[in-house]
Amino acid sequence: MKHIKKTWFLVASVMILSLTVVLSGCGAKTEPAKTGTSSSGSDAANQAGSQTSPPENKELILSTTTSTQDSGLLDVLIPIFEEKTGYKVKPIAVGTGQALAMGEKGDADVMLVHAPDSEIQLVEKGAAINRQLVMHNDFIIVGPKDDPAGIKNAKDSVEAFKSIAEKQALFVSRGDDSGTNKKELELWKKAGLGKPEGKWYQSTGQGMGATLDVASEKAAYTLTDRGTYLAKKDKLQLEILKEGDASLLNIYHVMQTNPEYIKKNNPNAARMINEHGAKAFVDFMISPDTQKIIGEFGKDKFGQPLFFPDAGKDENSLGK
């Protein structure tokens, strides 16, 4: 019995020891996380406008959609912002729904998203403030060069979809519930078709790149974002047949979380919101220098820009 008691004691002490290791391990790990941010921004911080001294709270969480990260635009803009202001941005690229929810719960300080209707809801609720138009990119309808459905002459994208359906010309859909897929279904609805069915309408259930390959092989039409198309253009037998009208636009706004709103639901989270940093980021995104960078982004690689800067414009004037 004595032995067994001793064993117990030993096991217990080993466990306590390992727990201490765990806790100290965690403590040691968090420290570099906080001090690891760049200290070079201390004197540059004065340029941030509202910021007069080096920011006390450097962490700035930006919730955004995967499109801004996948395009590489954030990799260009964020280092410039960090250099200018001394903030350390944590860009979290998620689906639009989560990006907005993070702002509403106070888990993010600032949002860069492209869902105008949902954004306005958030602003009306009081959860988001300082909403500013930043830029847009667009979807395009691509298809075989000979254009069997003759959509090149269609009035707009909805008319184009109508004539594809009438001619029963082959159309390849992603069918994966992505943003692009949703946009496509929305256009079919506007064309008065509901959910298209038939041999001419094929769903790949795959990403944009794979879907473009399928469309190219089958000489079919498809709806794509401009960036992916440009990146793969050389390998595809597809041409841009319809572009530019308002219903094909993806409009990006930047807006900051409202600490007053979060305070009501979650005072703890509200205390952590970086209001100054968020404001600095909004100002940065709509500043002329940044807008110029956005307009140039992708030109060297694709021969044309991926995003069109829109700060200060009227949202309703886009695509007209």
């Binding site: 391990g25 965690c26 790990k29 968090t30 570099p32 996380a33 906080k34 962490e59 969480i61 944590k90 979290i92 993070m102 719960k105 106070g106 888990d107 639901n265 979650n266 703890n268 989270a269 952590m272 919101i273």
Partner: peptide
């Protein structure tokens, strides 16, 4: 670990420490 979560005040979300956990 989210700010709105019970351990939000630790501020370790989106850090290497959170990944280790």
């Amino acid at each position: 670990l989210w700010r709105s979560g019970p351990l939000g005040m630790l501020r370790i979300m989106y850090t290497p420490a959170a990944m280790v956990i």
